[in-house]
Structure formats: structure tokens, C-alpha cells
Write a protein that binds this DNA or RNA. Structure first.
Lengths: 189, 189
DNA sequence: CTCCTAAACAATAACCGTTAGTGTTACGGT
DNA sequence: ACCGTAACACTAACGGTTATTGTTTAGGAG
């Protein structure tokens, strides 16, 4: 039975990409709230229903690739060398993610996110999902002997670190400061 | 200039209360997502626009009184006796809040919240606001000599404690466990 | 090569939360 | 008794999202 490989997939991916590119362009040009779904669909030359078959919501158009943030965090846990301490590994990954958000090309996108209430809220509920999957990875790690509650707590704290650092004047320094606190919390758990 | 006191205010409060009561009743009867704003307005015998002049959104109908959660947290900071340690005071307040959510009368409401995605997200963004105002209170406290980043971080952690404890099997025990971690984090800051 | 299935896409219309625009009522201060 | 205004109503719309009902087209089977 049919593992579809070939032109079909390419066309689908192309349509998806065209929608995402068009949306991001319009959003940056005119502002997120000033652009309607019908505008995006028209400009990308697809039907509104097609757009929603590729993206679950208007906000999802903006966070197209950020799904791998989730993978990167869990991989920072699972791909860690034996006996490599957990918290520094997570700190390193969060540092990289913060750097990415403030980098040249990505900065305008995150400025736009900060300006729209809907996008800020969507991002925050994304982070909650990330925290949950990170918590799952922590609970599953045999090297760690902490309680499930402690694992979930640390996962939240790590996500908080990202969120708070992004708002701070000096994001890199904020990550270091917050992770000192996380380290202490982890050790008593 | 008019400090309006009297029948006008009473009527307004009555209308507001009637809307809130009707909404909560319908939500619990038929489920939050199955009840439309137009249903609530019709049943409460008010116009849709009137409903929205009392409540900012459909979700706000459910969290009618939870605004005082915000005050209770900041007051736990500001009304604390001189030299009374911060973290235990916050722990005590969070314990009380968790107990309230799992109490007899309130439990069905929180079950409903957990079942609706829209309500969960709304609650979480409420918590974010609470965290911010708690952070402001911490920064303003002259007894505390921590950095602004540390204050904001602890505020988030405290809100996380509430959120995580509510999901835990034994909420009271979870609060205690998480606050041990918060205590450690606070001390290194 | 042809035919069939299923996936991708389209067009229309609707649903639902929310808001703007435009009155109407009735309370409260003068 | 009168006026300003706060509370409320009604209609209609807007914008995100979904259901419905096709239509096209790629890819595998014969």
C-alpha cells in the first residue's frame, strides 16, 4: 500500500511553503492584525480551506518552524553523554534558542510577535506544550532519580527561563542568572 | 461629579450577576463549548452587546471572581510582617488557593476548565498576568535585595507551583515539594 | 496504457465570538 | 421638573474557522 513518494509530496510542500512565505511577507509589510486570512489566501492564490488544511490556525502561520524547538529540548536530554549533568545541557540549549530569536533574520519576526496579543498568547501556549514534552523526557530518563513532580517543575522552570530571557535587557546574562536558580532547585529535588 | 450610589449600581450589579449565574449554569449543564454567547444572552434576557459590556470575553464569564487571586498574591508580599520570610508566606497563599480550587463547590468548575482548550489557555494567560504583578510587588519590596530578573523568575516559579499542583495527584504535597525547590532557587539569587 | 482510488484543492455558505453604529430608557444630581 | 449620562437594546457586520460538496490529478494495479 502506497507510501506516496514523488511529485505529489513536492507539490504539497510547495503549496505549504508558498502560503507560509506569503503570509509572513504580508504580516511584516502591513502588520499581523491588519492582514486577514482571506488576504493571505488570495495573495498565495489558494482557497481559504486549502490554507487551513496546511495550517491549524492563523497564528500557526507565524510559528512555522518553531516545532523543532520542542525536539531540540528533548534531544538535549536524551542525546546527552552518559553521566553528563542535565542542567548545563539544558542551559546550553536555551542559550542557543535565545540567540536564534535575537539573530539578524529572525528579530523582525519576534518584534512582530511581541506587538500582537494573539501571537504572544499563542506562543505561550506553545511553550506549555514544550514544557510538557520536556517533562516527559525527564521522567523517562533512567539517569535521573527525581520525582515526577520535580521533573515537571524543572521543565516549567526551563521554559520560563527562555520566556523571561527573551524579555530581558541582556538575554544571555539573564539565562545564566536564571539557570543558577534552576540548578539550585534541581539539587534539592 | 457624582459618586453614583444607589439603585443604578444595584441594578448594574444584578444584571452582571444574572449573566454570570446563567452562563455558569448553562456551561455546567451542556458543556462550555456547546453553549454559544447568543444562548447565554437569550437565557439571561439581555442583549449580546450588554453581555459584552459586563464581560470582556466568553472565557471571562467563567473566571468571574478569580481576579482577587492577583490581589491575594501581591498582598501576601506587601502585608507581610517586617522580616517575615518571603517564600513561606507565598507558599501559604498558594496552598490556600489550591485548596479553594479543589473544594466542594468549586471542583466542577475546574473540571470544566480542564476539559476545554479555550478555558485552559485563558487561565494560563491569566496566570501570566498574575506572575507579572507579583513580580512588580517583589521588585518594589525594600526588604528584598534580589535583582529584577531574580524577582521575575521567582514570580513565575510561584505561579508554576499553583498550575502544577492543581494537576498533581496530591496537590497539597506537590505544593510543598515545589516550594522546597523555589526556596533553594531564591536563596542562591 | 488505462482505469480506479485517494489526496489535494476549490467554491460557497455558514457558525461563532466580538465590535461598531445607533438609538432608547431611566436613574441621579441640579 | 429637567438634563446629562450610564445602562441597555437592536441590527448588522467583521474575521477566524469549519462543513459541505464538488473537481482535479497523481500514482498504483491490472
Amino acid at each position: 500500500m502506497t507510501v506516496p513518494t514523488g511529485r505529489r509530496e513536492r507539490k504539497k510542500a510547495a503549496t505549504r511553503q508558498k502560503i507560509a512565505d506569503t503570509a509572513l511577507r504580508l504580516f511584516l509589510e502591513r502588520g499581523y492584525d491588519a492582514v486577514g486570512i482571506r488576504d493571505v489566501a488570495a495573495e498565495a492564490d489558494v482557497a481559504v480551506t486549502t490554507l487551513f488544511s496546511h495550517f491549524a490556525s492563523k497564528e500557526a502561520l507565524v510559528f512555522e518552524q518553531d516545532d523543532n524547538f520542542e525536539q531540540r529540548l528533548t534531544q538535549a536530554v536524551t542525546n546527552r553523554a552518559p553521566h553528563e549533568p542535565l542542567v548545563p545541557a539544558l542551559r546550553h540549549e536555551i542559550q542557543a534558542m535565545v540567540r536564534h530569536c535575537t539573530a539578524e533574520g529572525t528579530a523582525p519576526i519576534y518584534r512582530m510577535i511581541d506587538e500582537s496579543r494573539a501571537l504572544r498568547e499563542y506562543e505561550e501556549s506553545m511553550r506549555l506544550r514544550h514544557a510538557e514534552s520536556l517533562a516527559t523526557a525527564l521522567v523517562a530518563d533512567p539517569d535521573l532519580s527525581q520525582s515526577a513532580t520535580a521533573c515537571r517543575t524543572i521543565a516549567r522552570f526551563v521554559i520560563d527561563a527562555f520566556s523571561l530571557a527573551r524579555e530581558a535587557a541582556d538575554p544571555q546574562a539573564a539565562v545564566d542568572e536564571i539557570f543558577q536558580m534552576i540548578e539550585a532547585a534541581w539539587e534539592v529535588a
